[in-house]
Amino acid sequence: MSGSRIDEAFADGPAFIPYLAAGDPNIESTKEYVRALVRGGADIVELGLPFSEPIAEGSTIQNAIVRSLEGGMTPDAYFDLVEDLDIGVPVVCMTYYNLIYRYGEEEGPEPFVRRAAKVGIDGFVVPDLPAEEADPLREACDEYGLDLIFIVAPTTRGERLRRIMDRVSGYVYVQARLGTTGARTDVSDQTDTSLGRLDEWDVPKAVGFGISEREHAERIVTGGADGIIVGSALVDIVAEGDTDDGTVAERLERKARELKEGALAGGESRPQPERP
């Protein structure tokens, strides 16, 4: 691995990776919320660029995307938002391929990647882009030194897994269960099996889909994950708005701290892998 900012984020133990939909409910709030998550211990931030047809998302994030689009979010507004963030941790852009493909005057993903690199984005997750269709984006990422993160599902095995792992950089996003994104109350056994299948690759493994509590984070890191990705549980806090328990930013920071502590506790209860 090349030693990107994302690689470094995994260097000091298990990483906590929160997700928010950019522009939910508006751009200024997103900046405030992202900074709160970083104060709470975020090592990388996944920031969603909303697409009108988010086929991989459950209802929580779908609704966030609707709020964001209604608030006027666009790819250009997104890039400006990221450029203003200045948070000191890597930012990963999570979006759907049509927005990447359509951006700019020239055909293909290059204009989007060029602009992303310029505003300080470190990598991409594109849920509707399987390895088979990813070469143009992979090449553009290589050109600008960005990471391309792929999702592996519980159903990904054998030849398919190899095809994905040949193209991944930064981290591999291990989907904890079948289905769409969304907070759940239990942790799937499928996760351990999925992590087991990835043993032979030394790219960091971050687990997402359904993580909402400290105990999940701890349990998943104990099971061998190098990081945890939490989206819907945080988006729920944004959707609730300010409550008697505190402002959205305060509650996001608290939740982030709790999840990060879970991840760290999980990391202590297993032997740390050696990293160069």
């Binding site: 088979e132 999702i151 599902a153 519980p154 990904t156 398919r160």
Partner: peptide, 22 residues
Amino acid sequence: QSKFGRYGGQYVPEALMPAIEE
């Protein structure tokens, strides 16, 4: 063939790819 000229392909979440291959 998965494509018709430049159109077509398989732009779906990874979780669906094994079902699509099947």
